[in-house]
Design a binder for these strands. Structure first.
Length: 350
DNA sequence: CTGACTTA
DNA sequence: TAAGTCAGG
């Protein structure tokens, strides 16, 4: 999922931050990334997600609702950015993911048969798929909550980066690093409240704090340009060439991009048979991806009735819990958002 | 993942 | 008040 820069990011480039550091800042959240995380994480020990009485999955709504309210209580102005149509060159990867999920479904069923809860949960997570209906419900819920969302023409991460570059957002938020390649000046990872995360395959929880990666700082520390970072990503693998270049790991890739002042020349010189997609096409895409400026960011007063309809009446959420959370959301709106619509940047540019 | 409740 | 457990839908 996304370009794996983890191994080449120097620890000094990552700053642990407090949610208070994001107060009154606009954060463009990769909606698909967030919803998918809720969908995989919010499950029973045997892997069953939360569902309403008609069997429709509701894990994503639960996560979206409560987390968004938490962020609002911290005065953080979140905007969710939804994926549009992926570029043609992503179809290979999309097909591959479908295969992986189909395999996971089989393994899940086998695990259930032999009563292996842990495996069942693991494979259920792997098999999880975000449906159009889930996305529609998520958008309806955000609308009712008075939280803005933007429909990207293509990749959500590209749209979030575009918004951050223009100053409409302070940072992009996602677990993936792609927004950095797309040029977002800042990336926030681990944007959650309770910082507990279970280590894969272990029964151990570790504290995970939100972290901030600044693009300029990262590039300086690596001693490369954004263009070289994109080339680096292509060498180690992106969603558009998942395998990267055989035999080139993060370290070699960094050396290679440093050795070439012009990343285009480097990419042109790659062995053609190693690549399913023209590396220059990928390079151009990261450098200048489709994005729209046709959006308006407004944090409106929550429509309690609508939220109640969606969560309680349609999806069997507990009335008490929803009412309680709505009170918190209304209070957050009054305290942080009402009469504070424009960020400083937008105000200066008015 | 998060809220609500329990425990020390 | 902090840390732990469990259910939520």
């Amino acid at each position: 999922m996304g370009v794996n820069l983890r191994e080449i990011i120097p620890p000094e480039a990552v700053a642990e931050i407090d949610l208070a550091a994001l107060r009154y800042k606009v954060v463009a959240i990769d909606a698909y990334n967030a919803l998918y995380q809720f969908l995989t994480a919010i499950r029973q020990p045997d892997g069953t997600p939360l569902m309403d009485s008609r069997g429709r999955v509701t894990s994503h709504l639960s996560g979206l609702f409560y987390r968004t309210i938490n962020l609002a209580e911290h005065g953080i102005k979140v905007v969710y950015v939804f994926d549009g149509k992926p570029p043609e060159m992503k179809y290979m990867e999309i097909e591959r993911r479908k295969q992986v999920k189909a395999e996971a479904v089989k393994k899940y069923e086998e695990a259930v048969k032999r009563g292996d809860q842990e495996a069942a949960r693991r494979y259920a997570q792997m098999a999880a798929r975000l449906t159009d209906e889930m996305v529609r419900d998520a958008k309806r819920l955000l609308d009712a909550m008075g939280i803005p969302y933007v429909q990207a023409p293509a990749e959500g991460e590209a749209q979030a980066a575009f918004m951050a570059r223009r100053g409409d957002a302070w940072a992009a938020a996602s677990q993936d690093y792609d927004s950095l390649l797309f040029g977002s000046p800042r990336l926030v990872r681990n944007l959650a409240i309770t910082g507990r995360r279970k280590l894969p395959r272990k029964n151990v929880y570790v504290e995970v704090k939100p972290e901030l990666i600044e693009l300029d700082k990262l590039l300086k520390l690596l001693g490369i340009t954004r263009e070289q970072l994109i080339a680096l990503g292509i060498l180690i693998g992106t969603d558009y060439n998942p395998d990267g270049i055989k035999g080139i790991g993060p370290k070699t890739a960094l050396k290679m991009v440093k050795a070439h002042r012009d990343p285009v020349k480097l990419l042109q010189g790659l062995p053609r048979h190693e690549l399913q997609v023209d590396p220059l096409k990928i390079y151009e895409y990261f450098l200048n991806p489709p994005a729209t400026s046709d959006y308006k960011l407004e944090w409106r007063e929550p429509d309690e009735k609508k939220v109640y309809e969606i969560l309680v009446e349609e999806h069997d959420f507990s009335p008490d819990r929803v009412k309680n959370a709505l009170e918190r959301l209304k209070k957050a709106y009054r305290e942080h958002f009402r009469g504070r619509q424009m960020g400083l940047d937008a105000w200066l540019r008015r």
